[in-house]
Computed example of a mutant assay.
Amino acid sequence: MNEILKQSEHHRVSELVVNWHLTEACNYRCKYCYASWIKPAESSAIWRNKNKTDQFLKSLKEYFDSTNDANPLTKDLHWSGLRLSLAGGEPMLLGDRFKDIVETASELGFKVSLITNGSFLSSETLEWLSPKLCMLGISVDTTQSNTNNLIGRVDTKGNSLSEGCLAKIVRLARQYNPSIKIKINTVVNQSNCNQDLKGLVNILKPEKWKILRVLPVINHNLTISDAQFKDFIELNQSVDTQVYIEDNLDMKDSYLMIDPHGRFYQNSLVQRGVTEYLYSDPILEKGIASAFNQIEFSSAAFCSRYIPNNIQGAAA
């Protein structure tokens, strides 16, 4: 039974966020990447079939619309807006299909946001894309090229985004859509846990800086200790933006996540700190209500992720 049914307190948020990871494919090779799902193969991903994609998006919009009293979330969670967060892998690798998904989701009434490594955000692309997004999230772990190489946050030619490139992307996004919100995601791992990113964050001035602890999904090579995570937070105090800190346990049951094959999934911490994914049946095969009932989701944990951390207090 869905965990949401066991909770009694009624929670309120301005919007419910559904995260659809479109693809496992990426032009980067980050060694800690969590976007590695149990097969079926990428060739069966929903985005490859426009009719399935349209049907899938319509199902999500109808089921998670705030007016759908049949959704069990309404028993203790109230929201007004519905946001679809597109992620990967790298979703912009899909080219025209990515554009079509953004257009279709917008037409259905979703607010749309994007998590990207930023490598495809040319001036031309930003001019088209920015007005269609309510939030642009860019994954940035460092601006040091040697550290990006150690992490694998580089393309096949060893290229990664410089501080100047990031600043230009943010400037153009705001130029083309003055109401867009910028988010920076930083995964703290063995290669960057000693780095001071305050200067970069204060230059970019994102509305949100999310600091996440590396999740041990693939291996333990870049995992860090409690002390290392705390030290990074202490080092990066005093930034002119809202900071949201997520340790591994904070992520458990707090996201509505869907994999490329249209399955709800959650991460489950098992013995020795290893993380594995638990999956529902495919939404398009079993129905969205049946699939959603197969995963655990905590409205309290979800809401807590949208409360900014006092970064000084979090490090104490």
Rank of each mutant, 00 (worst) to 15 (best):
K39E: 15
Y34T: 14
S44R: 13
K31C: 03
N19L: 11
L16E: 10
K31P: 04
P40Y: 09
L16G: 02
L16V: 05
H11T: 00
S14N: 13
S14E: 15
Q7C: 00
W37K: 01
I38L: 11
S44G: 00
E15D: 13
C33K: 00
Y32E: 03
S43M: 11
H21W: 02
C30H: 07
L16Y: 08
R12M: 01
V18P: 01
C26Q: 11
E15L: 03
N19S: 07
Y28V: 07
K39A: 12
Y34K: 01
A35R: 01
Y32A: 01
E9A: 01
V17P: 01
V17Q: 10
S43K: 15
R29N: 13
Y32H: 10
L16R: 02
S14C: 01
N27M: 08
V13F: 01
N19T: 10
T23I: 07
S44N: 10
L22Q: 05
Y34C: 11
S36C: 07
S44M: 11
T23A: 06
N19G: 00
S36F: 09
N27P: 07
S8A: 04
N19Q: 09
S14Q: 11
R12P: 00
W20D: 06
T23R: 03
W37P: 02
E9P: 00
K31S: 13
S43I: 14
K31Y: 08
V13K: 01
E9N: 00
R29P: 01
E24G: 03
S8E: 14
R12L: 05
R12C: 00
K39F: 11
K31I: 09
R12S: 04
K39Q: 14
N19A: 04
S44V: 12
Y34A: 11
V18H: 02
L16S: 03
L16A: 04
E15Y: 09
W37F: 15
C26V: 10
N19H: 12
W20S: 02
Y32T: 02
E9C: 00
E24R: 07
S14D: 15
H21Y: 09
C26D: 14
E42H: 09
I38N: 12
R29T: 11
W20H: 04
V17Y: 05
Y28T: 06
L16N: 05
Y28R: 08
Y28P: 01
H11Y: 13
V13S: 03
P40M: 09
K39C: 10
A25F: 07
E9Q: 04
E15H: 08
A25V: 09
S36N: 14
S44Q: 15
H11S: 02
A35G: 04
E24I: 07
Y34P: 02
H11I: 10
R12I: 08
S14L: 06
S36W: 10
T23V: 08
K31D: 13
K31E: 15
S44Y: 12
K31V: 09
E42F: 05
E15M: 08
S43R: 14
H21D: 11
V18W: 05
V13E: 08
Y32W: 06
S14K: 10
C33R: 01
H10P: 00
Y28I: 07
A25N: 13
V18C: 04
E42K: 09
E24W: 07
V17T: 12
N19V: 13
C30Q: 09
W37C: 03
A45D: 15
C33A: 04
K39M: 10
W37T: 01
